[in-house]
């Protein structure tokens, strides 16, 4: 394997960086916010951002799922759950936990260290691009008539697996809908909103 691939700063990489920056910003804002509606809207925006990021990584099918589930259904489900509970999260008493912080930092630095050994981003000689994946790309047009390789793998090569997965997800979805009371005209009964924290906050 010749390793003459040199990663460069292309516009796409810059785009990825700006998307990731926005993702981190949204994530921290969601953590800081105690206003649940804001968190639900921001999580929808987070899904849109990460879906755009998946597209730039060429994971189009994941982006499809992320858009449909993350930005569509799940923000609606979160709002449904929110209507059954209070609009505000209880204020968290922040007690410092030095041991936990140390563990997080240790694991994080080990993971950072591990990334050094990973193939460069976009390297055509990375193991993921040269081993069995290539086999599927070559054989799918002859073996299965479906032109999209991802669809062929999902629906044919591992069709039963996909069937099981969709059944699990469907069951979970039905259970959530039942819990939220989406079938009744009135819907779930809202719990009286108990204002917590500063009432002059305006939210």
């Amino acid at each position: 394997m010749n390793n003459d691939f040199v990663p460069t700063l292309t516009p796409i990489v810059l785009l990825d960086l700006s998307l990731l920056t926005m993702l981190i910003f949204v994530a921290f804002t969601m953590l800081k916010s105690r206003h649940l509606f804001a968190v639900a809207m921001l999580s929808g925006i987070y899904s849109l951002l990460s879906a755009a990021f998946f597209v730039s990584l060429d994971a189009v099918d994941v982006a499809f799922t992320e858009a449909a589930v993350g930005a569509g259904i799940s923000s609606v489900l979160m709002l449904g759950a929110m209507l059954l509970t209070s609009r505000r999260e209880k204020p968290v008493i922040s007690n410092r936990a030095p041991v936990a912080l140390a563990v997080v930092f240790a694991v994080g630095s080990v993971l950072f260290y591990a990334t050094i050994d990973m193939p460069a981003f976009g390297d055509p000689n990375a193991p993921a691009n040269v081993s069995i994946g290539q086999e599927y790309v070559e054989r799918t047009p002859d073996e299965i008539a479906v032109p999209n390789i991802v669809t062929a793998v999902l629906a044919s090569y591992r069709g039963f697996d996909t069937l099981g997965e969709t059944m699990v997800i469907f069951t979970a979805g039905v259970a959530v809908m039942l819990l939220l009371g989406a079938g009744s005209v009135r819907g779930g009964k809202p719990v009286d909103d108990v204002p917590v924290g500063d009432p002059k906050d305006g939210e």
């Binding site: 923000s75 449904g80 989406a182 009135r186």
Partner: peptide, 18 residues
Amino acid sequence: NFVGTIAILKFFRYRTFA
């Protein structure tokens, strides 16, 4: 995006999807 916006607003108005 369109369907999601409408769904959120409908949910807030009527508290249900039914």
